[in-house]
Computed example of a mutant assay.
Amino acid sequence: MHFTLKAKFQASPSSLYNAWLSSSEHTKMTGGEAVIGQKVGDKFTAWDGYITGTNLELKPFNKIVQSWRTSDFDQSDEDSLLELEFEEQAGGTTLILKHSNLSKEGERYIQGWEENYFEPMALYFGR
């Protein structure tokens, strides 16, 4: 199962990219504690350990690709794949989030991305 979501934020691509890969800023913009490395191969946790993964590909200010799983995944489930693309637009940046390799129950993460990321990020970057 896979899906694509888009959201526009009042921030530059570099601000969004840097915040996603900063432990302190990721924590502030979502409200859940994050510990994130900034290099390919670095592991990360977000939302107080609910989300874990590894940075697979980093193209500064353009793209982040991470393996991604939650504590709700079965041990036998493969990691899912999260791809984030940052497209500069007039007045901000469109974040294109592609989430793939999810189980058939993965559709529930759509609401999670909107409520736990996009809504708090809009408030954080709208300040």
Rank of each mutant, 00 (worst) to 15 (best):
K59N: 12
Q89W: 00
S71G: 11
D48A: 08
Q89H: 01
L81P: 00
L81M: 10
E78V: 08
D72S: 09
G91K: 03
Q89P: 02
T54I: 14
I51N: 10
E57M: 13
D72Q: 11
F44K: 04
L97H: 00
N62Q: 14
L82P: 07
E87R: 06
K59R: 01
L84V: 04
W68V: 07
N55G: 05
A90C: 07
A90H: 07
F44E: 00
L56G: 00
K43F: 15
D79Q: 13
T93R: 03
S80K: 13
T93H: 10
K59S: 11
Q89D: 02
L97P: 03
T93M: 03
T93V: 09
L95Y: 11
E87W: 04
L58F: 12
V65I: 09
R69Q: 15
K59P: 03
S76R: 02
K98F: 01
E87G: 01
T52D: 14
K98M: 04
F73D: 13
E83D: 11
T70M: 08
F44A: 08
N55L: 13
T45A: 11
K59Q: 08
F61T: 13
L56K: 15
I96M: 09
T52L: 08
G92W: 00
S71E: 12
Y50D: 04
I64T: 10
P60S: 13
T70Y: 06
L95N: 14
D74V: 03
G91S: 06
S76W: 01
E78W: 00
L82M: 07
E57P: 11
Y50R: 09
Q66T: 04
E83H: 03
S76P: 09
E78H: 07
T52A: 08
I51Y: 06
A90T: 13
T94N: 05
N55Q: 14
E85K: 10
E87D: 05
Q75M: 07
E87M: 09
Q66M: 10
